[in-house]
């Protein structure tokens, strides 16, 4: 049970920002690994192009290429398919090639990746969580 990530308050906070519906957030949780991978005290924002959107469990992952120099590929993780589809996400919510602004809680080890706070693509904002 150590790898359970309900993060409900965090998600509810994020919902205030999102443009998709968050009014009926179910009391579901993510799992798989600890939040301790990420530095919850920091928020980083990047702008880039979505290289891949992995609609997978236990976590959905968004790969974002950020132009340099030096150019970098960020791996941004968020909740499970099952939890996020209950908040309005779909397998088509994000597409490769789209330009996105992404904010996230960075990996503690300094590598290019983190836990999604929110992703903006045009006028659409999707919140992480679940």
């Amino acid at each position: 049970m150590t790898a359970l990530l309900p993060f409900r308050l965090f998600r509810q906070g994020l919902c205030l920002l999102t443009l998709i519906t968050c009014s009926a957030l179910p009391p579901v949780a993510s799992a798989h690994h600890s939040f301790a991978l990420f530095d919850q005290t920091q928020t980083t924002t990047i702008k880039g192009v979505v290289e891949r959107f992995a609609w997978t469990n236990p976590h959905i992952t968004i790969y974002v290429d950020v132009p340099g120099p030096p150019s970098q590929r960020f791996k941004i993780e968020t909740g499970s398919v099952n939890a996020l589809q209950r908040t309005g996400w779909t397998a088509n919510s994000i597409k490769a090639g789209e330009t996105a602004e992404v904010s996230f809680k960075p990996l503690k080890n300094g590598e290019p990746g983190g836990l999604l706070v929110e992703i903006k693509i045009g006028d659409v904002v999707l919140s992480g969580g679940g």
Binding site: H32, L37, T61, K75
Partner: peptide
């Protein structure tokens, strides 16, 4: 459906997890 693909985590010889890049 909930198929767990374990495509994001690397577990080292000490059993510690890190995010696969």
């Amino acid at each position: 459906e909930y198929v767990c693909e374990n495509n994001q985590i690397v577990i080292d010889s000490e059993g510690k997890a890190s995010l696969s890049l």
